[in-house]
Design a binder for these strands. Sequence first.
RNA 1: GGGCCUGUAGCUCAAUUGGUUAGAGCAGAGCGCUCAUAACGCUUUGGUUGGGGGUUCGAGUCCCUCCGGGCCUACCA
Length: 573
Amino acid sequence: MERILITSAIPYINGIKHLGNLIGSQLPADLYARYMRGRGNEVMFICATDEHGTPAELAAAKVGQPVAEFCAEMHKVQSEIAEGFRLSFDHFGRSSSPQNHKLTQHFAGKLAENGLIEEVSEKQVYSHADGRFLPDRYIEGTCPNCGYDKARGDQCENCTKQLEPTDLIDPRSAVSGSTDLEVRETKHLYLRQSTLRDKLDEWINSKKDWPILTTSIAKKWLHDGDGLRDRGITRDLHWGVPVKKGDEDWPGMEGKVFYVWFDAPIEYIAATSEWAEANGKPDACWQRWWRTDMGADDVKYVQFMGKDNVPFHTLSFPATIMGSGEPWKLVDYIKSFNYLNYDGGQFSTSQGRGVFMDQALSILPADYWRWWLLSHAPESSDSEFTWENFQASVNKDLADVLGNFVSRVTKFCRSKFGEAVPEGGTNGPDEEKLIAEITIRIRAYETHMGAMEVRKSASELRAIWVAGNEYLQTAAPWAKFKTDPDAAAASIRLSLNLIRIYAVLSAPFIPDASATIMAALKTDDMDWPNDVAAALETLPAGHAFEVPDVLFGKILDEDREKWQVQFAGVRKD
RNA sequence: GGGCCUGUAGCUCAAUUGGUUAGAGCAGAGCGCUCAUAACGCUUUGGUUGGGGGUUCGAGUCCCUCCGGGCCUACCA
């Protein structure tokens, strides 16, 4: 039995996430967590909301709420939606938790002790009207290069020229439109990650089995130009973790907070301690997952994230951990994903384009989305959601191949033998052939799931469902029933047991349907089919069951057409 | 501008890292079955692997070049 620590990139607080965000981290992480639990491993699956930063403050201001209140509400919303998608987090924390405040300050203190923090004085744009410093991209003006009048302070979107806010002609605040701006001197802390470059480089190079997407992004940042640059880890904001050196004040840093990207990954650790506290467990219970001196040495730690998150997880966060000089657990494997596009363009939170998590659940059950998203996960390149593809895949795979199999077996049994596993007959060549095929396929499924090959796992699982239909066609119990009822009974007994195996194997992908099947079979035996022949005898003759309702209704053409129109434009609510 | 990823059947994706005749699912065509959600099974039609050039006994895979799509480029997160 292994101990596996799984974290999903933590979603930002300022709104409801779309399906692209979901498949980029949380959903594949959940698949892996459920699978590993199903195989009898000890799993700790952690996620949280990422609550600090300028966008959160502005989103709260926009709805006229104090930012703490806004975040608390949005956390609750995201938490309920996560439940709706059956994301099986052991804990869904908050980066604004007291635990994260303390731990973030602790790490900063250690980094300072080890000479890895540098104080840098720099110039920042302050907006009097907004009463705040503005990040570069929140300043708008005319591009000195091309004359575009909505250029941002970091880059002109029209001519792609990189800019400094002071380059802009007629600069104004993107928040209020105010031109009452001033360049002020302000002091910030920088993490001297450049000094850890060789160590990070060596570490990345040792990860031969990581996805190319992961290592290529890391290497680019390590070797581009002058190599890994130091990074500012503080900001002039009110909402965040106050800058402290451990428990002590940090002279000159009063009123400043740590940058979200410094405290967000630390929340993985803090959220685990939140979990311990919420469950009344002592510190040792979370420390055994994170402290290599307290039992985490034999933990396998896997992170899931979209490609935009890779630099922070391959470089900044490891730099924080290495630089602390303390025995914290480093990640063992980083599974990164490309983007999911929506019907010819990008999903967009700001433009409300695409299907958002709450909307998805309002039109169809979670399993439909889970199956389609996972079986089309953007692993090797960006992938695309279209309603036609969604309808076709879900109807064929879930309704026709799996759902109808359950239906035809249970209904046939009810009509010929009654609602109990029939007795009589023994396995013949058809049954032996099925067992041999399923065994090979289940072993392949295990390999793919273990390797986090999401799409390959889905297609292998589907092939296992198909094998049931092939078997039934060959065995033809409806024909045998007329001449040799015992042979038909043996066929159906095996098929009913096969349905239980399907529920067990499919649970990581479609947990609700799996639970429905288990309930219909009146069993809670979720044992993994290590020995397929034995697993096919789990439900003995005489075991009562009931015919379940249709597992997956089909998506009708008119539904699809309606949704296509409904989600084509901008989100209105 | 620079870097990285990507382009394979009408659609969505494979191809054991240079090895025989490029494979699956869906869609299409034909046949079969009648237990089942008009479901299932079998057979089958689709490809100059984006274009061009090169290396090699051998290239979807390596190199060059052109064309298309995408991401990142460090103060959004």
